[in-house]
Nucleic acid binder design. Structure first.
Lengths: 348, 348
DNA sequence: AATAATAGTAAACACGTGTTTACCTATTTC
DNA sequence: GAAATAGGTAAACACGTGTTTACTATTATT
């Protein structure tokens, strides 16, 4: 009852040719003259015929579909999705004739979630997958790679050696933080606090490490009470800043937030306490969220080229699916500071 | 070379039963005792066997996949995606054992885009589709419905009559605007300006109509120069407000923005001109963006339950796919005002 | 002991495609 | 005139599954 169940047999009959010829037309074989090709194409168009995917796959063709798996226990932030999902995964895939199957994994240790991911691969729904926010030695990922599936990873540890089916793209977190700390220090800040990201994520640990190294390199110490736990979400920034304010101790003159969402929460907490940014305290973020320039004050942050990373990753993944995995598969994309108005020069 | 190509024949052999029995175990037939079922299940688990989807589909089963099509010519805003895509499409589908194929359509009149959408359906990649932002009498949509595919629409005109394969969910735009105008008027505002949404979208026209009706109902006129074009994007709010400010004429005391993103742009333009919200001008938005409460001042807006709408739509679509389309298929979800601090009472 | 139900088996068919093989018919080339 | 080539054809097979049909054991009920 669904559609007219038109298949290659009927197209062949209607075009007055054999089914083999229809197949040769569709798959661009050489020994079919333009005249015949056009005759067949006309019928194909007229009847809205598209070769049934299941038939094609069963006959050995690719599904031309990749999975996009977002591992995120908390609320999935809009900007994160826009950046990761749309900044070129879907569009890059589409431009290469591929489709994207999107899935959200709330808990990568939950058997039902693991089963669902495995099902996508083993059922042959997809030819490969991109994982966002996967832990560093996630058994599920290792199993899929060992099984021969092409896997693209972002925000993930760079593998020590080249592996056939593993593609890893990252941002230069440490480099961006170097620039940020350089800048803040040039404004005479010495007392800098940090609100970390989710330490279960690679970027969480790497940003923290980068921050500590950058401080250490400049001979600056970070007071333990100025290191606060966050998880990349705005609420965690708000809560962390509130705690710091309620502590009653001396405040840092600048706060480095693990990303812009956290920075928004931080600024909100400061405002609710009657403190002003940047007059009373400077704030710096990471990511360059699409609303960062609209906030009061516009947020100084580290820009990250999500489009380059996700587009590149998607292209590399499709290349790996189609030609095997001997292309370069480890890429780190540079980041750069965007100076706006949330940091203020202070007297020495 | 991909995976071990394990199929039902091999599972049958390994479990020491016939292939029919394996099939009966997988499809939960009644006449197979617990003992045999367990024996087979053990082998299935051990070999990571999942029935090949293409085989299943060819044999008459459903693909258990729905398409999610976002029609958006401009930059796709993060919040829009978070709201529409994740506010329950993927998760609701997943909880029902369905997968989601995501696609972005930049131009619904572009032949390549139309072809790609059609391909998804006619290739039998998906059993049904959800369209976000489709124009009211989009030929593509009408064709798919006529063809017998289940189609879910959001932000779309309610059909006059019940149709088997068309499911339409909407927000109560007019109701939310009524509350907003009621509130603003109660704060003694009489000079209210509006920045419209994208008029190619149903919600764009409906919000504008709702605004004009609400004003008219209260005997308030809207000056033509206070009606400004927007497109739901923050930049359009910024640009529109800048134009109004540069016009040099009298300003309204309150601005109603078609959504929160537009309102953020408006506030930014006001700040850049040295005007304060709400002291100099009140601003009200629509949607309750995830960052609206973090802005300075926190934005008064109309909350919309995206999760209810998209979850409900997804569930209804799957119901339609599985049991045919005789369930109720037209739903309007209520909206409610969230009062924060971006509107100020003014003297009469 | 006869009958009925339960638990299976093996074989076949259908689904729609890509691909191969053997074969045919014109036309062109040597 | 013989050989080669281009442009086909029809038939078969494979892919992996669900389902049906005819049949065979075994066990339970009357």
């Amino acid at each position: 009852m669904k559609n007219k169940e038109v298949n290659s047999h009927q197209i062949a009959r209607l075009a007055g040719v054999s089914r083999s010829t229809v197949s040769r037309v569709i798959n661009n074989y050489s020994n079919v003259p333009a005249e015949t090709r056009e005759k067949v194409m006309k019928v194909i168009k007229q009847y809205n015929y598209f070769p049934n995917l299941s038939g094609q796959v069963l006959a050995g063709k690719s599904t031309r579909t990749v999975g996009l798996f977002m591992i995120e226990s908390g609320p999935v932030s809009g900007d994160m999705i826009a950046n990761f999902l749309l900044a070129n995964v879907v569009e890059t895939a589409s431009s290469q004739g591929y489709y994207v199957l999107t899935q959200i994994i709330r808990d990568s240790r939950d058997p039902a979630a693991v089963r669902s991911v495995k099902e996508s691969f083993y059922q042959r729904r997809i030819d490969g997958g991109i994982f966002i926010g996967a832990a560093n030695h996630e058994p599920l990922i290792e199993e899929l790679i060992a099984e021969g599936f092409a896997i693209g990873l972002v925000d993930h540890e760079l593998p020590g050696r080249q592996e056939p089916n593993r593609i890893v793209y990252n941002f230069d977190n440490a480099g961006g933080i170097e620039q940020a700390i350089d800048y803040v220090v040039s404004l005479n800040h010495r007392h800098i606090g940090v609100i970390t990201g989710d330490m279960k994520r690679h970027s969480g640990t790497e940003k923290f490490r980068g921050f500590m190294q950058a401080m250490d390199k400049r001979g600056l110490t970070v007071r333990p009470e100025w290191i606060l736990d966050g998880d990349f979400d705005q609420q965690s920034g708000f809560t962390a800043m509130e705690q710091l304010l309620e502590g009653g101790g001396e405040l840092p003159t600048a706060i480095f937030a693990a990303n812009d969402s956290v920075a928004f929460g931080v600024m909100d907490a400061l405002y609710k306490r009657g403190l002003r940014v940047p007059d009373d305290i400077s704030v710096i973020g990471f990511d360059d969220h699409s609303l960062s320039a609209r906030f009061q004050p516009p947020l100084t942050t580290v820009r990250v080229d999500f489009a380059a990373v996700m587009g590149g990753l998607t292209k590399a993944l499709i290349g790996c699916i189609e030609h095997g995995g001997d292309t370069f598969n480890k890429v780190t994309v540079s980041t750069n500071l965007v100076i706006r108005e949330s940091c203020k020069r202070i007297p020495t």
